[in-house]
Structure formats: structure tokens, C-alpha cells
């Protein structure tokens, strides 16, 4: 029994994905030894949130075959919602301090951001993708991609029109001394943001694996006709997928509000980063996206550390080009049979 597992583990490690993951871990450990443990801490915090973004992207691509380029805007909506929820609560707290509420206020803001993101996701599916799907499915990948670009432009300018271009940010969510982990001081916000991302990813994973609805989402991504044959309502699953994906982006935007203040195009950087992740991991591969997110985060942190902070887009982009040339399916391959392959 144990030898069997070891053998399986050995085979996994020997695959391309295994080699890459092991290599990434070794590099992370080595650089932390030479430069200091903050490299690992930074990687892990950035990676957690990047994973939330990338999961949503991979999910939408896998289930609906939409190359989502408006994903950053749901991140922006999340951060905006969190800002306008958190500021009034903070003001109220300034007048009447309350320890329990000041711990809960950020969580309430993040929850509001999730709901708002999910709501916007449902609206975009119902108003836009549903109608396109009903009209024609020819050239779906290209048409839906162009629509997402349109949505992105609309939302960015909508933000600018209604809320203006100034930075809407907060200094911190949680007050208090920073935590000290491995001789590195990590602010409470970063710590909680990471814990939150792990929790959400865990819940999401459980939902996809163990619940009936989660299985239905996976079924739709693997075979749409088969899903209909067993009685799954496709349009319901599509709405749910979009809501989940955009809600996760909203959570990411809200929990990183202390790092990225909300302004119209705040979503661009996370959008590009999460696209790097899913190209690296394989389009539509949700588990791969989680691992890939940490690898891209590591790459980014290392580039900033060793080459300079202006290069943090150049190195991942160069890597993406190499991947697209030599391993276009991504290092983890893909679980989904998209319309591209039919």
C-alpha cells in the first residue's frame, strides 16, 4: 500500500509538472536561505490572492469557453465595494470603539465585495454572454473574448465617470502590531489576507469535489452534451460559474485593498498576472491554477529581488512566450476539452 503510494508519488514528481514544482520549491528555499525568509513570505501572500483570481479565470474558461479579459474589472469592483463598505464602518467605529466590530468590519467588507462581484458576474452572464450564446455559437471563443474586452472598457470608464479617478484606498484593515514569522515582520493585513485565501480556496475545492452542484460544474466543463443528457441545466451552471468566478475576483480585490487602492484600471495588473498563471498551468485547469499562482508569485518576487522591480513584468512575459512555443498546453496540461479542440 505504502510502496504503491510512493511509486505514484515518484511518477508524479518525474513528470514535467512535478519537476517544475520541485524546482520552484528548491529555488524558493535556496533564495530564502541566501537573501532572507521574507522571499517565501512575500511569495506566499501574493500567491494566495493570485490563486483566487486565477481559479476564477480557469473556471470560466473551462466551463464556458470564455477567454475572460474583464476579470481585472471584477477585482476593481471588489476593491471599490470594500472601500465604500469599510470607510463608513470605520467612521462609525471612530465615534464608538468596539473591539469585536473592528475585527469583523474588514470581513464584512470582503463579504460585501464577494456578493457584489458575484452579482456583477450574474448580470454579465444574463445580459451579455447568454444573449450571444442564444444568437450564435459560431466563432464563440473570438466573439466572447471581444465582448469581455468591451465589458472591461465599459466598467473601467463607468468607474471613472461615477467615482472619479482618485485613489480610494485604506491604510490598513486590521490595526495592531505586525506578526513576526521566521524573523520577518508581516503586517496583520497580509497575514489575514493569506489565511483568507487559503480558506476560500479550500472551501472552493471542497465545493467542486464533494457537492452535487460542484460536480455538475465539472461535468459541464468536461462534456456539455453529456451534462445535458444527465439532466443538468446548462444555463443555471453557467450563471453559477460566472457568479463564483467574479465573486472570487471580488474577494481578491477586497482583501488586497490595503496594497492596491481602488482606481479605474487597478485590475490590469492582477488580470495580466492571472493570465500568466493560467497559461503556465494550462487553460481551464483549476488545481493547476492554484499551484501556478504560487509559482508566478515566486517568479515575480525573485525578479524584483535579483533583477529589479521594473522587470517584474518582463521576466514572466518572456517565460510565457517560451511556454506558448514549447508547451502550449501548459505544464499541468488541461482537464477540459474546450471548443478550441473540438
Amino acid at each position: 500500500m505504502i510502496t504503491e503510494y510512493l511509486k505514484k508519488l515518484y511518477e508524479t514528481i518525474r513528470s514535467v509538472a512535478g519537476i517544475t514544482v520541485v524546482l520552484a520549491i528548491v529555488v524558493a528555499i535556496l533564495s530564502s536561505i541566501f537573501r532572507g525568509p521574507y522571499i517565501i513570505v512575500n511569495t506566499v501572500v501574493t500567491g494566495g490572492m493570485l490563486a483566487l483570481m486565477s481559479i476564477g479565470l480557469a473556471l470560466v474558461f473551462g466551463v464556458m469557453n470564455v477567454a475572460q479579459f474583464a476579470h481585472g474589472e471584477y477585482f476593481m469592483i471588489g476593491s471599490l465595494t470594500a472601500y465604500y463598505t469599510f470607510i463608513p464602518i470605520e467612521r462609525y467605529l471612530g465615534a464608538n470603539p468596539n473591539a469585536a466590530l473592528s475585527f469583523l468590519a474588514p470581513l464584512v467588507s470582503i463579504l460585501a465585495a464577494f456578493c457584489m462581484g458575484a452579482l456583477m458576474g450574474v448580470l454579465s452572464e444574463k445580459l451579455i454572454f447568454y444573449n450571444l450564446r442564444k444568437r450564435s455559437r459560431t466563432n464563440w471563443v473570438m466573439n466572447s473574448f471581444l465582448l469581455t474586452v468591451g465589458i472591461s472598457v465599459l466598467l473601467v470608464n463607468g468607474h471613472q465617470l461615477i467615482f472619479g479617478t482618485e485613489l480610494k484606498g485604506i491604510v490598513r484593515y486590521w490595526t495592531g502590531r505586525p506578526f513576526c514569522i521566521m524573523d520577518v515582520f508581516v503586517s496583520r493585513d497580509r497575514c489575514y489576507a493569506f489565511i483568507l485565501s487559503v480558506l476560500v480556496i479550500g472551501l472552493f475545492w471542497l465545493f467542486m469535489k464533494a457537492t452535487r452542484t460542484g460536480r455538475a460544474i465539472r461535468a459541464v466543463s468536461q462534456d456539455e452534451t453529456g451534462a445535458q443528457m444527465v439532466g443538468i441545466d446548462l444555463s443555471g451552471i453557467q450563471v453559477l460559474t460566472m457568479a463564483l468566478s467574479c465573486g472570487l475576483a471580488g474577494i481578491a480585490g477586497a482583501s488586497l485593498l490595503f496594497m492596491f487602492p481602488s482606481y479605474p484600471s487597478v485590475g490590469l495588473d492582477p488580470l495580466y498576472m492571472s493570465w500568466f498563471v493560467i497559461i503556465l498551468a494550462g487553460m481551464g485547469n483549476v488545481l493547476g491554477a492554484v499551484v501556478g499562482a504560487f509559482m508566478v508569485a515566486l517568479l515575480k518576487v525573485l525578479t524584483m529581488e535579483y533583477i529589479g522591480s521594473g522587470w517584474d513584468f518582463v521576466v514572466p512575459t518572456a517565460l510565457i512566450m517560451l511556454i506558448l512555443i514549447f508547451k502550449p498546453n501548459g505544464i499541468f496540461g488541461s482537464d477540459v476539452r474546450g471548443v478550441l479542440e473540438q
Binding site: 452535487r212 460536480r215 455538475a216 465539472r218 468536461q222 444527465v230 439532466g231 443538468i232
Partner: peptide, 18 residues
């Protein structure tokens, strides 16, 4: 139209979706 990345057991459970 099987769900090729699910196990046999999971495929059968999907059959009982309704």
C-alpha cells in the same frame, strides 16, 4: 459523452444527478 476526467464512480453518480 462521458465525463472523461471523472472516475467511473463519479460518472455514475453524475448519472443520478436528478
Amino acid at each position: 459523452n462521458l465525463f472523461s476526467n471523472m472516475t467511473v464512480h463519479e460518472n455514475l453518480l453524475m448519472g443520478a444527478y436528478t
